[in-house]
């Protein structure tokens, strides 16, 4: 399993500096690929619509996932409910490139996450803080993303989560070696995974930003704060000109340190998704699956 785990982390490394876009049809997948997405997330409904519709949200219809796999040559990801081992087995049978065990869907298990080490395909999981991130890595996640708050178009939570994870990593790195045992107890994380952070100052897997990114400037902000790439969910296909916005976000991630270019990229993008403020949300998806 060790070799598989390495290969899966390697795939995440090849996605770095890229944008992963939520799509709900083969046509949208093609638009995303043409706009420069490094991967697509196949979904029946984007998070903003899941939020609006309410009810129980589940894994997508396999036929939709297969149609999207046929439509594009870039990696295809899809979501399973937290703890839903069988949905994950189904996606693995479809030869999905990456499974997102996601708080965007309704959790299937309110205590246990999937034992991801039992799978051959890679998993990405959301995290609000270092504890959540290292627990997911301990369970076998090959990639981490901030949870943010999906489907809001509000970047504040993604910023909060990314800053917190980075702050906590800096703290771990500044510790005395003999303090790591107590820290792993405090964070409720496996000691060896924490030790990786102590030694390298980084997560042992690639770390993307997700949840609320709506503009090229949002995407660049997340990169500036230490994200290695960005997931954009509702922000693209809920906006006025998806194609143009998608392409602008791709370029913004590649050139996040160039304000002049970001100014160009931010021009005439049409309407951004409307967005919901934190105070207006009834359901905080980020609280699912700690």
């Amino acid at each position: 399993m060790d070799e598989r785990n390495t290969l899966n982390k390697n795939l995440a490394q090849m996605l770095k500096g890229g944008v992963i876009m939520d799509v709900t049809s083969p046509e949208q997948a093609k638009i995303a690929e043409d706009a420069g997405a490094c991967a697509v997330m196949a979904l029946e409904r984007i998070p903003a619509d899941i939020r609006a519709a309410g009810g129980v949200s589940r894994m997508s219809d396999p036929i939709l996932i297969q149609q999207i796999q046929e439509a594009v040559s870039i990696p295809v990801m899809a979501k399973v409910r937290i703890g839903h081992i069988v949905e994950a087995q189904i996606l693995e049978a479809l030869e999905i490139d990456f499974i997102d065990e996601s708080e965007v869907l309704s959790p299937a298990d309110d205590l246990y996450h999937i034992d991801k080490q039992k799978f051959s395909v890679p998993f990405v999981c959301g995290a609000r803080d270092l504890g959540e991130a290292l627990r997911r890595i301990g369970e076998g996640a090959s990639m981490i993303r901030t949870k943010g708050e999906p489907g809001t178009g509000d970047v504040v939570q993604a910023v909060r989560h990314m800053r917190l994870i980075q702050q906590q990593m800096r703290k771990v790195q500044s510790m005395r070696e003999d303090e790591l045992y107590e820290e792993s107890k405090q964070l409720q994380v496996p000691y060896d995974v924490l030790r990786c952070v102590f030694e390298t100052g980084k997560l042992p897997v690639v770390n993307f930003a997700a949840g609320g990114v709506a503009t090229p400037a949002d995407a660049a902000l997340m990169m500036l704060l230490g994200a290695e790439g960005v997931f954009v969910g509702s922000g693209i296909f809920k906006s006025g000109d998806p194609k143009k916005r998608a392409n602008a976000i791709v370029k913004a991630v590649a050139n996040y340190q160039d304000p002049l270019m970001l100014a160009e990229l931010s021009k005439n993008l049409g309407e951004a998704m409307i967005g919901i403020n934190e105070q207006e949300i009834a359901l905080l998806m980020a609280e699912r699956g700690v």
Binding site: M14, G36, S73, I74
Partner: peptide, 15 residues
Amino acid sequence: PGGESTVMGRLLREL
């Protein structure tokens, strides 16, 4: 480097 050739090919031209 490695990555997605579709992404790099597009960005090479656009940038």
